[in-house]
């Protein structure tokens, strides 16, 4: 027999609370409450433009098991800063946690979750078999795409748009046989006057200078 045993009433004779929490630590009524469903969120992060930051951020998302759909990064008007656009799919508490974990990293200057009406674009390049060039062209026109390269065996086209449009276009190209394709993932900016993620206070309206340099395009 093992030692170290202690006196006191057994588990079943103790005061027991009535409530429960769900797996996200939220108090619930187990009868009615469902878990939060995953939702798609677009995060824009302004980061210092230096080596290792992309690895730091992608490492953060993978080790904390945030479900990442796409991550793009590129320079901004300010040479010392880069902008990341990160699309994740998580239940609401997960989205909030991802934002806070991002904000916490020292090279991250500011983070903002974009509204669903934000301007979002993805680029895809598709290389299809060139047996039916006219039909390929027709589809490319239909989706406002461009032909980048056409040869006897392959046609390569470029399209931009939102995810739905690109998915549809890819489906349409399938009939010719897609040899290869590449998608960039989303780039996004907040619509209109709303700021994306800025050096200044996240809620502040952008300065005139920022508006002038960081052209906010609307379409």
């Amino acid at each position: 027999m093992s030692r170290g045993e202690l006196p006191g009433p057994a588990p079943e004779d103790r005061m027991q609370p009535e409530g429960r929490r769900n797996s996200q630590g939220i108090r619930i009524d187990p009868e009615t409450e469902a878990e939060h469903p995953p939702e798609r969120a677009v995060l824009s992060a302004l980061v210092t433009h230096e080596p290792g930051v992309l690895a730091e951020i992608s490492g953060l998302f993978s080790r904390r098991q945030f479900n990442i759909e796409s991550l793009t990064v590129g320079p901004t008007v300010d040479d010392s800063l880069a902008r990341m656009t990160i699309v994740i799919e998580e239940p609401r508490p997960g989205v909030d946690q991802a934002k806070k974990q991002l904000e916490k990293r020292i090279p991250v200057i500011s983070v903002r979750e974009l509204d669903t009406d934000a301007v979002q674009r993805e680029l895809v390049i598709v290389k299809v078999n060139g047996d039916h060039p006219d039909q390929v062209n027709a589809i490319t026109d239909m989706y406002n795409g461009q032909t980048l390269d056409a040869g006897p065996r392959t046609v390569t086209v470029e399209l931009t748009g939102n995810q739905q449009k690109i998915d549809d276009a890819i489906d349409a190209y399938r009939q010719f046989g897609i040899r290869e394709l590449v998608r960039t993932g989303y780039a996004a900016l907040a619509r209109g006057e709303a700021p994306t993620a800025q050096v200044s206070q996240p809620n502040q309206a952008p300065t005139d200078a920022q508006v002038a340099t960081e052209e906010i395009s609307d379409d």
Partner: peptide, 10 residues
């Protein structure tokens, strides 16, 4: 640390 808020327990 704001990231600790509602991380494990709301």
């Amino acid at each position: 640390d704001p990231a600790e808020i509602s991380k494990n327990v709301e």
